[in-house]
Simulated assay, not measured.
Amino acid sequence: MLKKDVRRQITTPLGGPAFPPGPYKFHNREYLNIVYRTDLDALRRIVPEPLEIEEPLVKFEIMYMPDVTGLGCYTESGQVIPVKFNGVEGEYLHSMYVDNHPAIAGGREASAYPKKLGAPRLFIDSDTLVGTLDYGSLRVATATMGYKHYPLDIEKAREEITKPTFMLKIVPNFDGTPKVCELVQTQITDLTIHGAWTAPARLQLFEHALAPMADLPVLEVVHASHILTDLTLSAAVPVYNYLNEK
Rank of each mutant, 00 (worst) to 15 (best):
V184H: 06
V80D: 07
G78Y: 08
A224T: 01
T189Q: 12
K115I: 00
P17N: 11
T38C: 09
Y240K: 04
D125Q: 13
T186M: 10
S95Y: 04
Q204D: 15
E155N: 14
T75D: 08
M167P: 00
E55V: 07
A103T: 04
P66L: 10
Y147H: 14
Y36A: 06
L168F: 01
H194F: 14
I161D: 06
G22E: 08
K3F: 14
D153T: 04
C73F: 05
N244V: 00
A110W: 00
K116L: 14
I188A: 13
D215R: 15
L219R: 15
Y97T: 00
K163Y: 03
N33L: 15
P212H: 05
P164V: 04
G195E: 05
P120S: 06
I188M: 13
V98N: 14
L233G: 02
H194E: 02
G70D: 07
K156A: 12
Y150C: 07
V171F: 14
I10N: 12
L233N: 11
P164I: 03
T229H: 05
M167E: 11
G72C: 10
R158L: 08
T75E: 07
I124W: 01
G72L: 03
I193N: 10
V80M: 13
K169P: 01
E155P: 00
Y150E: 15
T189L: 07
Y242F: 15
I62F: 05
G16L: 13
Y113S: 12
V58E: 07
I53G: 06
G78I: 07
G72Q: 03
N241T: 01
E54I: 12
D175Q: 05
A141I: 09
A201N: 02
A196K: 04
N28S: 14
T232N: 07
T38F: 11
I170D: 06
Y242E: 06
E54G: 15
T38N: 09
L43T: 08
F19A: 06
N173C: 10
D41R: 12
T11W: 01
E182K: 15
I34T: 06
